[in-house]
Amino acid sequence: MILNRENVANSVVMIQPSLISYSFHSGPEPALLDVASIVADRILLLDSYFTVVIFHGSTIAQWRKAGYHEQPEHQAFTQLLQAPREDADAIIKERFPVPRLVICDQHGSQARFLLAKLNPSATYNSDVPSVPGGDILFTDDVSFEVFLDHLQRLAVQ
C-alpha cells in the first residue's frame, strides 16, 4: 500500500536501500551496499525507508566516547558527527510513516540493522581478506558475486 502511494524515489529506496559514507577525506558520497563499505574511520548512513541507521566505525565510536567532539580543537570531528545526523533528520521530517532512527557503533548490538542489509562479500568462511578496521559477516549466505557466477553457469548449461 505504501509502495503505491509514494513517489518513484521513495519507492526505489524501499526496494534498494541507499548507503552514504561520511569521512574526513571527502564529503558525503554513495557507498556500495557491501560489508566492504564498513571502515573504522567512517560513518555510514543507511536509508531503507522504514529504518534510518547512522553507523559509526570503531575508531569514530572510540573518539566519540572519549569526548573529542566536545573539545574546541576538534571542530572537524564535531562537524563529521553532525553531518549524518542532519541528513537523517531531513529524511525523517519528510516521511510518513516516520522511519525508525537507529544510531549504532561497529560491533554493537544495534549494528544488526545495517549488517542485515549488506552484501556478505567477506564472511567467516570466505577467502576474501577483510579490510583493516573493516568487518566480516557471520552468515552462511553467499555474496551477490557468487550468486551471479552460479546463475551464469546455470544459464550456459
Results as ranks from 00 to 15, higher is better:
129 P>D: 07
81 L>Y: 03
40 A>C: 01
33 L>E: 05
77 F>P: 06
32 L>S: 07
4 N>E: 14
60 I>K: 06
4 N>W: 06
141 D>Y: 01
15 I>K: 14
128 V>S: 02
89 D>A: 15
70 E>F: 14
147 F>P: 00
57 G>C: 03
105 D>F: 00
97 P>Q: 00
136 I>S: 04
149 D>V: 01
23 S>R: 13
52 V>Y: 04
95 R>M: 08
111 A>T: 03
12 V>C: 14
73 E>W: 06
105 D>L: 01
57 G>A: 01
86 E>H: 12
114 L>M: 08
88 A>M: 13
100 R>P: 03
6 E>I: 15
153 R>W: 09
42 R>T: 15
104 C>S: 12
41 D>L: 02
48 S>K: 12
24 F>V: 04
155 A>H: 10
150 H>V: 10
67 G>L: 08
124 Y>A: 15
133 G>A: 02
83 A>H: 11
90 A>K: 15
16 Q>T: 15
116 A>T: 01
129 P>A: 09
26 S>Q: 12
12 V>F: 15
133 G>M: 02
30 P>A: 11
8 V>C: 02
118 L>N: 03
149 D>N: 14
61 A>M: 05
126 S>D: 04
98 V>H: 12
137 L>R: 10
154 L>F: 06
69 H>K: 07
148 L>H: 10
24 F>D: 08
48 S>W: 04
85 R>G: 10
134 G>M: 02
3 L>W: 14
3 L>D: 13
98 V>G: 04
80 L>A: 06
69 H>M: 10
24 F>T: 01
116 A>I: 02
25 H>D: 14
84 P>G: 09
56 H>P: 00
144 F>G: 03
136 I>V: 13
30 P>N: 11
142 V>W: 01
65 K>N: 12
88 A>Q: 11
125 N>T: 15
98 V>M: 11
128 V>E: 00
53 V>M: 10
95 R>D: 08
141 D>H: 11
77 F>C: 04
141 D>E: 12
27 G>P: 00
154 L>Y: 07
134 G>Y: 01
123 T>R: 06
93 K>P: 05
63 W>G: 05
4 N>G: 12
144 F>D: 09
68 Y>N: 04
61 A>S: 15
126 S>N: 07
47 D>F: 10
76 A>I: 09
73 E>V: 10
